[in-house]
Design a binder for these strands. Structure first.
Length: 606
RNA sequence: GGGGAAGUAGCUCAAUUGGUUAGAGUACCACCCUGUCACGGUGGAUGUUGCGGGUUCGAUCCCCGUCUUCCUCGCCA
């Protein structure tokens, strides 16, 4: 059906349309008033078309303003532009529309920041006027990309036999994990629903129900603080669960999904399946991180044996006391000024290191503050172990292993960035596998679950009965791209006996397990298939594809860092009536009370 | 909850060592201009320098407090 507002979009008209009478509607992107002739760029979702207006036209004389971002519709004739006025940067640049009539559909006031030009407005303002910000090219494209990525995920999952399900948004609080968002119940005074942190239990129950292959573009809610790559409040994940599978079968599904998405929506190179699998402990040892950026060639190698009993007592003592010395090779830095090395040491110290040593190999000479304490044999051995080439340097960290890993995890990306070793034009994926099932709490000394208590321990019951708990690995994995964790997943523990035993090791009696996870355990007692899954983050995936450093740039209506919606003014106070219906009473912390009293005083004075 | 950075016109920024009338670009308003596409030109209006206090003859600048925003640590099965 023909629209009364337009015959064509602003991206459609070409030379072949010359002579047609058309009607276009959109936003006034820019106005160039030359006195005798006025050019208007009319913009809609699809593109832009130049409108030519004769100022003698009645509709022009009657109008006070051509204020940008007003919504108007123009009728007129499509005309070919003369050769020297064609705009090759515009898809419609070979034609223009000579306006014969115009209708103002939605006049705009003065806008708080520019839409047409790159006006770097502060984020709070952009969030308050998000609808304006979303008109801007970059953000508009990001949100479209997000929509297309989600469509493609659905298409892929459906094609390979998965069914999409919906799970409850109002559900029960889960006792472990992140902080929940709670929703008070009106019918049940004093009781609360919780918004799901993830549909974890539901998707497992769908497997127990025999549905075999589940997916959902699932909203998840966590009341935790924000980061650049973590939006507070809510986010979306491609939630996946499969029955009768082993880890590798899940990997194949997800690798296929990422291959599909990244080949379709990015021109950059990316890792093809199978993605490298790196055991957790190896990743920590080599990169000091369980989300390594594999674009960065720098990693740690153990050189403890070379420093054991050496003349550099600071390092020799660390080794003698059970610590480690690890080296990181910085390629082609021999020409760098002293300041580079001093700054790296300062950086390491800020990350918690007591210090950082280095040795530079340059044209057969060795430069280093510590070399005078070392024999030539040790220096040569370090060169071999560190795979040093002439012009390279080694940086050394010595401490307890956990400290060295922590500092190395900070220094490695910093070195990679500073030395320009990270190629922005590739995506490097990897799986981190074999997470430990248990770890020792450093403060209390107790054995605790190190990640997910519901993962299947490798070796099953036998391992739980006979192995040192700290040596037991779980079928638990992460997928990482360019240093960003896209998802965790696991083969689940579907055997009640194994579950009770795992919880027993972590210090939970069977009654406690029944009380907290009774629903799941009962389901597992009535015939549960082996199953597992994963849930790659949609926001982070789009962030990578759009090359955006901040997750808010790929979310249409994000919270700010304080978990507020500045446009809708959320969260907001509830009315007395609402509170009464929900049987709630608000008790503000003192700080907030003081703030409110102050605000009330001020409004009284006014 | 801790640490860091920032806060000056609607927006982006400047303002010498603390110095007298706080400037520029852009947006806005008026006028001029028939081929621009970030059009150009002339002129105009626009400020509680986040807020409160202190030091000083004098504070955008120094000090204290406070608020806001971003980044970060904790947190994120």
């Amino acid at each position: 059906m023909m629209s009364i507002y337009r015959t064509n979009t602003c991206a459609e008209l070409r030379k072949a349309d010359v002579g047609k009478t058309v009607r276009l509607a959109g936003w006034i992107h820019s106005v160039r008033d030359h006195g005798g002739v006025i050019f208007i760029d009319l913009r809609d979702h699809y593109g832009m078309t130049q409108i030519v207006v004769d100022p003698e036209r009645e509709f022009y004389r009657d109008l006070d303003h051509w204020r940008v971002e007003s919504v108007v519709s123009f009728s007129g004739k499509v005309v070919a532009r003369s050769e020297n006025t064609v705009n090759p940067r515009l898809a419609t640049g070979e034609i223009e529309v000579v306006a014969e009539g115009m209708e103002m559909l939605g006049e705009a006031d003065v806008i708080p920041f520019q839409v047409a030009k790159d006006d770097s407005a502060p984020e709070a303002l952009r969030l308050k006027y998000r609808f304006l910000d979303l008109r801007r090219d970059r953000l508009h494209r990001n949100i479209i990309l997000r929509s297309q990525v989600i469509s493609e995920m659905r298409r892929y999952m459906t094609e390979i036999g998965f069914n999409e399900f919906q799970t409850p948004i109002l559900t029960a609080s889960s006792p472990e994990g992140a902080r929940d968002y709670l929703v008070p119940s009106r019918l049940h005074p004093g009781k609360f629903y919780a918004l799901p942190q993830a549909p974890q239990q539901f998707k497992q129950l769908l497997m127990v129900a025999g549905f075999d292959k589940y997916f959902q573009i699932a909203p998840c809610f966590r009341d935790e603080d924000a980061r650049a790559d973590r939006s507070p409040g809510e986010f979306y994940q491609l939630d996946v669960e499969m029955s009768f599978v082993e880890q590798d079968e899940i990997f194949a599904v997800i690798e296929g999904m990422f291959e599909r998405i990244f080949s379709k929506f990015s021109t950059k190179e990316f890792t093809h399946a199978p993605f490298p699998r790196i055991p957790y402990r190896e990743a920590m040892r080599r990169f000091g991180s369980d989300k390594p950026d594999l674009r960065n060639p720098i990693e740690m190698v153990d050189v403890s044996e070379h420093f054991a009993g050496c003349g550099f007592s600071a390092f020799a003592n660390v080794v003698a006391n059970g610590g480690v010395v690890r080296a990181m090779r910085a390629p082609k830095v021999a020409g760098k000024p002293r300041k580079f090395f001093d700054d790296m040491i300062k950086f390491a110290q800020a990350a918690g290191a007591k210090g950082m040593a280095y040795i530079i190999w340059n044209g057969g000479e060795v430069k280093s503050p510590i070399v005078k304490f070392l024999t030539p044999e040790i220096v040569d051995a370090l060169k071999v172990t560190g795979k040093v080439e002439d012009g390279d340097a080694l940086f050394f960290l010595a401490d307890k292993e956990s400290e060295v890993m922590k500092v190395g995890g900070a220094v490695i990306p910093e070195l990679g960035n500073q030395l320009g070793l990270i190629d922005p034009n590739v995506f490097k994926f990897c799986w981190i596998v074999d997470f430990p099932m248990f770890e020792r709490d450093e403060e209390t000394g107790q054995i605790i679950f190190s990640h997910n208590p519901f993962s299947m321990p490798q070796g099953g019951m036998d391992a739980l009965m006979n192995k040192n708990p700290l040596d037991i690995l779980a079928y638990q994995y992460d997928i990482v791209c360019n240093g960003i964790e896209l998802s965790s997943g696991a083969i689940r523990n579907h055997l009640p006996e194994v579950m009770y035993k795992a919880f027993e090791i972590a210090g939970y009696a069977p009654e406690v397990v029944d009380e907290k996870f009774g629903g799941m355990i009962n389901a597992f007692k009535l015939g549960a298939p082996p199953h597992g899954g994963i849930a790659p983050g949609v926001d982070r995936t789009v962030m990578l594809l759009a090359d955006e450093p901040n997750i808010r740039e790929v979310i249409a209506f994000p919270f700010n860092q304080q978990a507020q919606d500045l446009m809708m003014n959320a969260p907001a106070e509830a009315t007395i009536k609402q509170l009464r219906e929900l049987h709630l009473q608000v008790v503000l912390p003192k700080k907030e009370r003081d703030k409110m009293e102050k605000a009330q005083e001020q409004s009284k004075q006014e």
